[in-house]
Design a protein around this nucleic acid. Structure first.
Lengths: 225, 225
DNA sequence: TCTTTTATGATAGTAATACTATCATTATAA
DNA sequence: TTATAATGATAGTATTACTATCATAAAAGA
């Protein structure tokens, strides 16, 4: 018995659906690998075309530009995260336990039930740590928002906020705490690796310290017990 | 009686010190204005040269590239912030009061004692909200860090962490809480303006809500009383 | 099976970006 | 007064970020 999870993406993010063809899936797969390797700034469609043995023109038939492609990738990850959250909190009663699941998920400590032949989630997660905020830190964020590009992120944020509310209905800032958690789950790992003095985890070998910090941050804010 | 604050910048950030000439100061002044207006991605030395009536080549004599210029600007702001922090917490005894000063400072609610003829701090602060993280979210962050480009940011972070420690010596994550506060002081304002559903301040007209959230976040984490 | 559509490849071309180099001119300092 | 330094003027290169055109192969429809 095999299950497949199909993530439906916002059609405005692409010109031709990359999931529907081998070339499209190649673009997705190798763009993740390449951005991971050389970073988004140095990543170009020309280099990507060379790597997968196609032409620039062919890639432009799938994505308008590299920024849309990045937004597509990040958007895919948030959607996948939300699904994971639903899956892993299903049948969990205690809001406290749900919050622990959220933090484990955002710290990439949870096992996945699916494999995606062309998407290396581990690599995509690494990409997201460094590049995700670039998808909205632009001058065209408002237009992109109107086009619903950030719906997956906002949905995930809202779902986590709802769990916070469930844990403590009196807490006044569930959404801001949720976006803080989402961003910090990236930034603290980035800092730990690259600018360690901005964290308290410089010497840590594993991610346990960051996870504990995030737990402390959230539960302190939400108080209770 | 007039006082002047001279902020000493890391010489590796520039080729020729922009503070030492009218052209240099023009570059600083107009780059802030221009990045504020069109965003860092669309900002080019060519456009900047046209605006201030000089040539691309002349600008390249001051800065190697636009990324170094951005890092210079952001770096200046962090240094200025640290000075403000020292100034405004001088003679303040209570650590709690110091933390309130920090948050007011990061939310740009504090008056400044100096004017800088060619640097519009208000505009630079707006630029920092959207662009500051781009100065380190790169593949060359490690090298840049070795060159001490982020020292002003790390110094400010450490100083705030020290205040947290003073407030509650038992708290385990003063640095991470400090970097969280620093980043969120930007992100929550950015979200409030551009992606309001990621915050609880969509309808707020002023910044008071964000300030309260930041206070709540910090004091909850640090507990005590 | 024949034909039409669709996807890709191959190739070319353009405007802008991100620089580097050279030389003349002007202002300043020794 | 002469050397030095800063800027302007101009030119040029490699790369980026696209757009356009045409040929070919594969798939789908009649």
């Amino acid at each position: 018995m095999e299950f497949q999870l199909q993530i439906k993406m916002n059609p405005k993010l692409y010109l031709r659906d990359p999931e529907q063809s081998p070339l499209g899936r190649n673009i997705i797969q190798h763009s993740i690998g390449m951005i991971h390797q050389i970073g988004f700034e140095d990543f170009t469609f020309r280099k990507l075309a060379a790597e997968i043995g196609t032409t620039e023109a062919s890639i432009y038939r799938y994505f308008e530009n590299k920024h849309k492609l990045l937004t597509y990738l990040i958007s895919w990850l948030w959607t996948w995260m939300e699904y994971q959250l639903v899956y892993h909190t299903n049948n969990v009663r205690s809001p406290k336990e749900k919050i622990l699941v959220v933090i484990r998920l955002l710290s990439f400590q949870l096992a996945d039930q699916f494999t995606f032949s062309h998407i290396d989630r581990n690599q995509l997660y690494q990409v997201a740590i460094t590049e995700s905020s670039k998808s909205y830190l632009t001058r065209h964020v408002m237009q992109d928002n109107k086009d619903q590009f950030f719906k997956p992120y906002k949905d995930l944020c809202a779902r986590i906020a709802a769990i916070f509310h469930e844990y403590n209905a009196a807490y006044k800032y569930p959404r801001s705490l949720s976006s803080t958690l989402l961003e910090m789950a990236h930034y603290q790992f980035f800092f730990k690796k690259n600018l360690p003095s901005l964290t308290d985890f410089a010497k840590d070998k594993d991610d346990a310290g960051v996870v504990q910090f995030l737990q402390n941050l959230v539960f302190s804010s939400l108080k209770k017990e």
